[in-house]
Computed example of a mutant assay.
Amino acid sequence: MKTKGDQQLVRRINRSVLLRLVRAQPGLSRARLAAESGLTKSTVSLLVRELLDEGWLDEAGASVGDGMGRPSTPLHINVGVRALVGVEIAIEVLRVVCVSLQGDVLHSDAQPLADHTPAVVCAQVARMVAAAHRHLLASGLRLSGIGVGVPGAVHDATGVVRFAPNLGWRDVDLLPRLSRALAREKVPDVAVQLQNDADAAVLGEFEFSDGEGEDPLIFVSCDVGVGAGIVLNDRLFIGAQGMAGEIGHTVLQVDGPRCSCGRLGCAEAFISSRALEQAGGDTVRAARYLGVLLQNLWVTFEPRAIVVGGKSCEAHPEFLRGAIDTVAHYAQSAGLVPPVIRSPRYGAWTPSVGAAALALHEYLRPVRTDAQARRVRPAGAESLA
């Protein structure tokens, strides 16, 4: 019986519960936290003191009396101590952002991707992250975690990029290479997270929304590749081997045009940015295909909202509007109300901001397997706790 380990996990869970409550309801007092969480007042007092000392919480604002005893002090997420870095490795560009614990973008940088070779990509990422870290230091902020999104399927337990056809990657053990590159650039040894870019993007929309967020929530990326990230029951849904959400390689037309993966008739062959360029900018047919794809996601997951972004939408505003009209037509035919379908809050920076949200998401929902915990915290790395 691992009593010590069990107690540490319970402590992490209790801390995460308090943080989530304060993020959802800024200004809660210790007494209200105890009432909302079901934890004892003494436990809440102890954990709040830890979170204050570590820079997660702040006692900002005047004390408030409730007529039942001494005044209580409202608690807020402290945005003046800790910050996160998010990286998007896209097909043609690298994007790096610094993000506050509340989702405010503090710094951003984008550079053309120099090469698709993993070693070259890691070196370029490390240089950009080192520059972002210098920005945080100049602002008096502490780097608390790094998230990286890649355009392919990531095996969650190992961090191996299983399949990224548009980069030419298959079974690339990226995380150790990236950790070594960051160390060479003298980036602090913090936890590094690696995930599919659409999975990261949906976490940014989920974690940095107002209140508790939308659940279920789906993010669809229509870029050079096409993918989806899914939040289901308060967690990122990745499937058995990290392949969930690879909707770009679902077949929309039997014997259709050839896709980058080798199949015929994949969604990517109709609605990716490359497909739209090859079609000469004619988005009417492509919008119908996107609408069919969104309708299929709707009836499969019944999400509260579907967020759609990427180069295809940015270059062709009518593309998403046409897809929404297609979904509305299907809904009317069935006598149903469709989910909200909208653009992302962070525009082109959504995957990189979402990558920054990876570390926060894992900290706020700490129940993981031992293998996963080892993956996200390289040897010697500072824990978010």
Results as ranks from 00 to 15, higher is better:
G225C: 09
G65Y: 11
A287E: 07
S16M: 04
K4M: 03
R23C: 03
A83W: 09
M128I: 08
G265T: 01
G67E: 02
G103E: 00
T326R: 13
T3D: 02
A62N: 13
R12K: 13
P344K: 11
P378F: 00
Q193T: 10
R11G: 01
R30V: 08
R345H: 14
G140I: 05
S139T: 08
V150G: 06
A119M: 06
D156S: 12
A153W: 12
G213R: 07
F219H: 11
Q8S: 04
L19C: 00
V10C: 01
A379V: 04
V10M: 05
V251C: 15
R134D: 15
H155D: 15
G145N: 03
A132S: 15
V327H: 00
T350M: 02
E302F: 06
E314K: 10
E268H: 00
V48M: 02
R23T: 06
I13Y: 12
V22T: 02
G309V: 11
A359G: 12
V125I: 10
G27F: 03
E212N: 07
P165G: 02
G145F: 03
S29D: 01
Q102T: 14
G281F: 12
S72D: 14
P378I: 00
S16I: 03
S383W: 05
R20K: 03
D255M: 13
G227L: 07
L384K: 00
V148R: 08
Y330S: 01
S333G: 08
A60I: 14
V99Y: 03
P216Q: 10
I341D: 07
P26W: 05
